[in-house]
C-alpha cells in the first residue's frame, strides 16, 4: 500500500523585503510503501529539509501534490489539506524529529512525553506508564526525567525528541538530520532506534548527511542531485 506519494512538488520562497523569489526545490517525485524507509541525501542547501517541512506543512507547499494515506481521512493531499486536518494528523499520525528540540518551556522530559500521549486521548494512568516505557526504551537517564530539557546534551535532546514522536506510534515519521552533531556511539543508538521503528511497521523519511551510516536500512535513496529515487538493494545504491 502506498503511504506517501509526492508528485512534481515544488516550493518557492519570496522575501518581499528584498523583492526576491527563490525556487528552493522543484519537480520532486517519489513514492513510499508502508513500512519503507526513504533516505534523502544531498548537499546542504539543496532543499532536503524543505521537502520534509513541506510534508509536515511547516512550509506551505507551492506546486505539485503529496498524497498521504491517512488512517482517518483515507488518501489526502497534504498540500491542500485544511489546517485542522493537518493538526489532527500531527497529533495522531505524522511525527517530525529534528536535531533541535522545540518544546514548551518549563516542562520536564517526563511531562513532555506524557503530554504527547494525553493529546492523543490516553488516560493519565496509561500516559504515565507509556512515557516511562518510552524514556527507558530510548535510554534517557532516569535522572533527567524530571528535569527541564534546556540543559540536555545534543544526544539527550534528540532521544527525548524521538521518544516524544514515537510514543504516538506515528504511521509516518519524518527525521530531519537526526544524527547531525552526534558522536559515533549516539549515532549507533539512533540507528538501532530506526531499526526498531522499521520493524514495527513505521514508514520513515529521513535526511542524513552520512547515508553510508544507514547502509542496509534504507529501502530507497533520494538524491537531490538527480531529483529521483533509486531502489537500494542490500545497501548498495543501484545505479541502473
Amino acid at each position: 500500500m502506498t503511504m506517501l506519494q509526492v508528485k512534481d512538488f515544488g516550493k518557492r520562497f519570496t522575501i518581499h523585503h528584498l523583492g526576491k523569489t527563490r525556487q528552493a526545490v522543484e519537480h520532486i517525485q517519489f513514492s513510499l510503501e508502508q513500512g519503507e524507509f526513504l533516505g534523502i541525501v544531498g548537499k546542504s542547501g539543496s532543499g532536503k529539509s524543505t521537502i520534509l517541512k513541506s510534508i509536515y506543512r511547516t512550509y506551505r507547499p507551492d506546486e505539485g501534490s503529496m498524497i498521504y494515506h491517512s488512517a482517518r481521512y483515507g488518501f489526502i493531499d497534504l498540500t491542500d489539506a485544511t489546517e485542522r486536518e493537518i493538526l489532527y494528523l500531527r497529533k495522531h499520525e505524522i511525527g517530525y524529529v529534528s536535531q533541535f528540540l522545540n518544546v514548551m518551556p518549563r516542562t520536564t522530559s517526563r511531562e513532555l512525553v506524557e503530554k504527547a500521549l494525553l493529546e492523543m486521548g490516553a488516560t493519565e494512568q496509561a500516559a504515565k506508564i507509556e512515557a516511562e516505557k518510552a524514556l527507558t526504551h530510548f535510554e534517557l537517564d532516569p535522572k533527567l526525567w524530571d528535569h527541564y530539557p534546556n540543559t540536555f546534551s545534543g544526544g539527550e535532546k534528540l532521544r527525548l525528541n524521538i521518544a516524544m514522536a514515537t510514543v504516538k506510534k506515528p504511521r509516518l515519521l519524518l527525521l530531519d538530520e537526526p544524527t547531525a552533531s552526534l558522536d559515533q556511539q549516539s549515532k549507533i543508538k539512533v540507528r538501532e532506534i530506526i531499526e526498531k521503528l522499521k520493524a514495527s511497521g513505521t514508514t520513515l523519511v529521513g535526511i542524513f548527511h552520512d547515508i553510508e551510516f544507514m547502509d542496509g536500512l534504507c529501502d530507497h535513496v533520494f538524491d537531490m542531485q538527480f531529483s529521483q529515487d533509486k531502489f537500494v538493494k542490500e545497501g548498495v545504491i543501484d545505479e541502473s
Binding site: F13, T14, I15, H16, H17, K53, R57, T58, Y59, R60, E83, I86, L87
Partner: peptide
C-alpha cells in the same frame, strides 16, 4: 495552534502557527 495576522483591520494571513512563523507569506508578516 493556528494563527491569524491582522493589519489595518483586515486579516492578511492565516495558517498553522509554526507555518506563520517559519514560512510567512505576506510582506507584513515577514
Amino acid at each position: 495552534d493556528r494563527t491569524m495576522v491582522m493589519l489595518n483591520g483586515s486579516v492578511i494571513e492565516e495558517g498553522l502557527t509554526d507555518q506563520i512563523l517559519e514560512d510567512p507569506q505576506h510582506a507584513y508578516t515577514q
